[in-house]
Simulated scan of single mutants.
Amino acid sequence: MANNVLLNNVAHQNLKVITRFGAEYGDSVSNALVFPTEFVELQKEYPILFKQNSDTKKYQAVALLGLSQGENLFLDPGLRTGWAANYIPAAIAKGPFLIGRQSQDSGKTNTPVVHIDLDHAKVGHDDGYPLFLEHGGNSPYLEHIASILKIIHEGVAIQDVMFKLFSELDLIEPVNIEIDLHNGEKHRLVGNYTINEEKLIALGGDQLEKLNKLGFLPLAYAVITSMTNIRKLTEIKKSKK
């Protein structure tokens, strides 16, 4: 169970966080939640898929990391970081940190602040990188975490608007992924959605202008382009056999 607390440089002056990724830290996941603010980087490494909440009918984007439950093909204990890709999804890269809200001005405003899960496997006092400098101030590592949390915070703020417009333009379609590893092992991934490229190309000028003005047109193409990474996942899976 998480033990989330507001991070501060007095109570947590000597706290350290391990920056490696591995199964022992809970990173063995077959997909990770991702956000529009990182689509351009993600599409270079992972397939970006959409999933729909059966209750709310809202969409959420995920990066596909493996072909089986609990399989993360990008984990590599032989590497310094433990992760075999140039970009790591923000929801995983943030480690034990998360965004909280702090009430200010007698409750009139809520400011985003950094929280940390003190019971996370990466958190301790012996191993890892310090969060604060010896004589005060944030460490470079904590500044890096702040930039990752900003990606998530800004992505959450725009994702509902993006998916609403994608839906209004009828761009979202279901996609079934079937993978044959040529050794008798087959994988079929269902319940996912993507962008229909033909419908995107067929949009009128006003519709394309609206997508582009809001910054969503390149994100739609990033999703389409990312699907070529399914072949990359297949090759990684074969190499591990």
Rank of each mutant, 00 (worst) to 15 (best):
D76A: 12
K51R: 07
L15F: 02
K199Q: 07
G137R: 15
S54C: 01
L49R: 15
L189W: 00
V113M: 12
D76N: 11
L211W: 10
G66V: 00
N4V: 06
A63N: 04
V223R: 02
F50W: 07
I152W: 09
K122I: 02
K58H: 04
L208M: 10
L67I: 10
G155H: 08
T228C: 03
E209G: 11
G95T: 03
E198F: 08
P174G: 12
V190L: 05
I177A: 06
G95A: 03
E197W: 03
V10S: 07
T81H: 04
D55S: 08
L6Q: 14
N192L: 02
P218E: 06
A91C: 09
I158Y: 11
G66Y: 07
L7V: 06
E185H: 05
D127L: 09
A2N: 11
M162V: 05
T225Q: 12
H182M: 10
I236Q: 09
L208Q: 11
L200Q: 05
I236S: 00
D117A: 04
S147K: 15
F50R: 02
F166K: 13
G204N: 13
E154C: 03
G70C: 05
P130G: 04
S239F: 09
P96Q: 13
D126C: 00
K232T: 12
G124S: 14
L171W: 01
R231E: 12
L181A: 04
G215A: 03
F39Q: 09
V114Y: 00
V223T: 08
Q52Y: 05
E143Y: 10
L217V: 13
F163Y: 11
I151D: 11
G184H: 10
I92P: 04
F74R: 14
A220S: 13
L200Y: 11
E71V: 03
V123R: 15
I88Y: 11
I177R: 08
N9K: 09
I148R: 00
L118P: 08
S106Y: 14
G22T: 03
H115D: 01
F166Q: 13
G70F: 05
S68P: 11
G128R: 13
L15H: 03
I172G: 02
A121H: 09
L131S: 07
K51G: 08
G205P: 07
L133Y: 09
H125I: 13
H144N: 13
R101N: 05
H135Q: 12
R188L: 05
T37P: 05
L169G: 14
A2C: 10
L203F: 01
I179K: 01
E24F: 01
F97G: 14
K210R: 12
K44N: 07
I230W: 01
I158H: 10
A220K: 00
N86M: 01
E197C: 00
L149Q: 15
